[in-house]
Amino acid sequence: MGFYSNFSEEDLIESYTNQVDHQGKADNEILEEILRRSSLEDFLNKIKTKNLYQNEKNRLIREINGHYVNKRSKQECLSLISSTLLSGESIRLLVNIKYDQIHQNVENLKVDSKTLMYSFVGTIVASIISSVIIFTILYQFSFLSVFHFSLLIPAYIINYWVIRLITGKTRVNLAVFIASFIATLLNCVYFIFLINYS
């Protein structure tokens, strides 16, 4: 039994394609496995069919994106998209998934007054929570005090997750990114204050 004998057809296609793309040709062992299962021509036809379907899906995704940008509803988008390769159910599934993903990405990037307000509140709350956690760790494990400024890294991570929880947006949102950074600067101020007055 060869290396590729336990590969699924999908894995075999992926391996073959990678070898051809990176080395210019497939190695003998993979070719032997392909010929053991079927003919090379059948295998290449499967790759061609797979690529056709993937290209068609990519085309539809671009159309979905265009319809979203033009402020069409999901239902309008669904009624305007058609394909000769994909079934109606596949198109419906693709529209539902991709339309929602595009909407979430756009909403995630949006910086509005609500996001700014929640980011401000998140900055204060996060810096307090992370400082309490870090100070508690330093109190419990005093030997870590030599690394106190290195603890700004976990403080930043805690700040980010608290702000993300409060705003409902990720760090690709500019307000969330800045709020996490400011909260960490506040941690730094708290640390300096603690060091000077302890």
Rank of each mutant, 00 (worst) to 15 (best):
H67E: 15
K110N: 06
N51W: 06
I195Y: 05
S73I: 06
V121F: 06
I97N: 15
N70S: 09
N96T: 06
N196Y: 07
K98N: 12
A126G: 05
K98H: 13
S5G: 03
S127K: 00
T184P: 01
L60V: 14
H67M: 13
A26D: 08
K74V: 14
I178K: 01
I129T: 07
S142P: 07
L31I: 15
I182T: 02
T170P: 05
N58G: 10
I178V: 07
S119K: 00
S79P: 00
I34S: 00
I192Q: 12
V111F: 05
Y16I: 14
K114N: 04
Y160V: 03
Y160G: 02
I34M: 11
I133F: 10
R171V: 10
Q54T: 14
L94P: 09
S8T: 11
S130H: 05
T49Q: 14
F177S: 12
K169C: 12
E29H: 10
D11R: 06
S90E: 14
R171W: 15
E89I: 11
A126Y: 04
D11P: 03
F7Y: 13
F43W: 15
V162Y: 02
I195W: 06
L94F: 10
N70P: 00
I124V: 01
I13G: 02
L144H: 07
Y190L: 03
D21W: 07
N28A: 13
V125R: 01
E63W: 09
G122N: 01
S145W: 04
F191E: 02
E89Y: 04
I166E: 00
N187I: 06
E63D: 13
R59A: 13
F149S: 07
I61K: 13
E63S: 12
S113Q: 04
I13Y: 03
L60F: 10
N159G: 04
F7G: 04
N196D: 02
N105S: 09
T49V: 14
K71L: 13
D27H: 06
L185K: 01
S5P: 12
E32F: 12
F177D: 11
G168V: 08
Y53C: 05
T84G: 06
Y16H: 11
D100F: 03
S131Y: 04
G88F: 10
L78Y: 11
S38N: 05
E9P: 01
Q75I: 06
F43H: 08
H148Q: 12
L60E: 08
S145C: 00
L12E: 07
Y156R: 01
L12W: 04
I153M: 04
M1F: 05
L116R: 04
I133K: 07
L185N: 03
Q140M: 10
Q19K: 11
L40C: 07
Y99D: 08
N18K: 12
F3C: 05
S130Q: 03
S82A: 08
R37K: 09
I192M: 09
R164G: 02
S119I: 02
I124P: 02
L174G: 08
R37Y: 15
V162I: 11
L151E: 02
